[in-house]
Amino acid sequence: MYAIEIQNMKMAFGRFEALKDINLQVSKGEFVTLLGPSGCGKTTLLKALSGFLTPTAGDIFMGGETVTALPPESRDTALCFQSYALFPHLTVKENLDFGLRQKKVPLAERVQRVDRVSEQLELGAQLDKLPNQLSGGQQQRVALGRALVMQPAVILFDEPLSNLDAKLRDSVRIEIRRIQRENNLTAIYVTHDQAEALSMSDRVVVLNGGRVEQVAAPKEIYNNPATSFVADFIGSANIMDAEVVGESSPGQWRLNTPLGELVSESKSRPKGKNIKVCWRPEEAKIHGTGLNTVSSPIRDVSFQGAYSDLFLTTNGCEIRLQAREFGLKEGDVIDYSIPPEHLIMLEAN
């Protein structure tokens, strides 16, 4: 039995379809991130899970029971808001205790749960303060604590780190993951930050235009993107059109590309004759030789600290490479090779 199961879910606002045919299963204790650009439907999906929106079609199950028509107050979920949404007139302690009072938890247990969570999140010294007396990080912890104290079956995060500075974001990110693991919570996390998604999640759901593009573990998403959108959205990728010429040997596919004939190594067959292919800038070997070697002049160099980004134009195709070698400059002609196992065949054109 899954902690969450979404079946054929659709969500329409008038003629606009925000979510199209969503299917997803999440196991208990799993940390799943909904990732995508603004307007892709990730917050809509989260709101449907928390009960603030009712799907136009399809079903949502939690713990094997349908919750599609249940209002938020009747669901065993807790939502961490992007804005924290702390009650400004209540102290930290009253904020933490709010949900427990609504659920009529006995007083002794309420005190115990609030104490435990405040200790876990190091909020002991802040309990009598009002939210406006806390820093951003502390407010974030209170919002997290208010959700945790409910011991929900599912905890939902709506871009909870977007208001924090970069350094604080890193530490709170680690803290959220630690608490989620310690409490074996099922978590759905919404973000548009790919680094956050890749570093925190057991699985990532990439959404685009209301559709699921790919559901996979972070490494799989990065190394084997299913579509050109995923390849482009997660990290940076060189994406180009290709024509499948044939299979030169088992698992070795010859492709006609703007860079010339290249070979891709793949166990699965291409999805058509005219497809898209992609490869990551860091996978190309500068000064490489042999299979898939291309020669091209450098158009631009951008120093990034640990590496330099090289921008090249080959037969009208914009290429980006990563070089650890810092002596290269604009106008230099370099040879680079793309390992066949890193030349990924994507969807048909």
């Binding site: 009960g51 603030f52 107050e73 949404a85 709010f98």
Partner: peptide, 14 residues
């Protein structure tokens, strides 16, 4: 804010 009212609702407040 809507979020504050939604948070109360999410925590079980009618």
């Amino acid at each position: 804010s809507d979020d504050v009212l939604d948070a109360a609702r999410d925590l079980g407040a009618g």
